[in-house]
Write a protein that binds this DNA or RNA. Structure first.
Lengths: 91, 91, 91, 91
DNA sequence: GCTTGGGGCGTTCGAC
DNA sequence: GTCGAACGCCCCAAGC
C-alpha cells in the first residue's frame, strides 16, 4: 500500500512532506479555534453589557434559542410536555 | 422598585428606547453566532481535507486537545496538594 | 500562626493525628461520591427503561425539571420571555 | 402509527395503563433525585466539618478530583496508546 | 444508537 | 450583601 490516497499505516513512514502538511493542518485548526474563542469572548461581552443595561441574560439566551429553533418542532415538543403533565395530573 | 438601574421585570414595560436596544443586542448576538457557526464549518472542512490526505481525524482531534491541555500550570496550590497527598500516603 | 484552629498552610507540618483525620475525611468523601455515582447509574436505568416503553426521555426530563421549579418563578420567566419577544417583534 | 413499540407522540393518547406507568416512572426519578440531593447535602457537611478542623476545602476537592482522575489515568493512557497504535496500523 | 466532546446553567466561593 | 469568577453538573449535537 502506498500513501497516494490511502490511510497512513504503521508500515508507512511519515515522510518529511507529510510532516509539513501535518504541521500546517494543526496550525490551521488551532488558528480557527482561537478565532472561535475570540467570538465566544465577544459574546460574553455582549451579554455582560446587556446585563449592565438591565436585561435578564438568562431570558436573552432563551429568546435567542427559541428564535433558532424550528417553530413546528417547538409546538410539538410543547404539546408532548402538556400531554405528559396531564397524564400525571398536572405539575 | 423602579427601572432606573434595576433588572427589567415582567411588571415593567419595555419602552421604545429599550426595544431598540434589545433588538440591537439580539442582532449582535445572532451575528456572532453566525460567525461562530462559519468557523465551525471551516474546522469541519480542515478535518475533512486532512482525512482526504490520509490523516486520522480522531487522532488529530486528540492531539489538538492534548496541546490545549498542556497549557495548564499549577502554582503554590501544587505544593499544598502534594503536602496533603503525602499526608494520606500518596495516591 | 499555629494550627490550633486556623487554616493549615504550606508552612505548617501536618501532624500524625491530622493525617488520620485527613484520611478519614477523604474516605468519607469518596464513599459518598460512590453512592452518588450509583444513584446516577440508577437514574440512567430508569430513563432507559422508560425509553424502552416508548416514553420520550427528553420530554421526561423536561417534565421533571418543570415540576421541580417554583410555579411562580416559572410564570414570571415565561412572561419575561414573551415580553422580550414582543419587544423585538415576535420570533 | 400505533403505539405498540413506537415512541408515544402528541397525536396519540396516553391510555390509563400508560398513565400509571408514567406516574411510577416520574416518582422513581424524583425519589432518586431526592436521594442524590441528600448525598450532596452530606458532602457539604463533610467539607464544612473538615473546614472547621482547619483543612483547606478547595485543596481537598482538588485532591479528591486528582485521585479520581488518577484511577482512570492509566487505562486512559493505555487507550491513547492503543488509539495511536491503531492510527498507524497496529504494532 | 451510543458515546464522546463542547456549551450552557446553576452553584459556590472569594472580594469588595 | 452583592457582585463577579470558578467549578462541577447536565444537556445537546456530532462522530463512529
Amino acid at each position: 500500500m502506498a500513501d497516494d490516497a490511502a490511510t497512513i499505516s504503521s508500515t508507512d513512514v511519515i515522510t518529511g512532506a507529510a510532516q509539513g502538511r501535518l504541521r500546517t493542518i494543526i496550525e490551521r485548526i488551532e488558528r480557527l479555534e482561537q478565532d472561535k474563542a475570540a467570538i465566544a469572548e465577544d459574546l460574553k461581552e455582549v451579554y455582560a453589557e446587556a446585563k449592565g443595561e438591565g436585561f435578564d441574560v438568562k431570558i436573552l439566551r432563551k429568546v435567542v434559542t427559541l428564535r433558532k429553533k424550528d417553530k413546528v418542532k417547538l409546538s410539538e415538543e410543547q404539546a408532548l410536555i402538556e400531554l405528559y403533565l396531564e397524564a400525571i395530573g398536572g405539575l
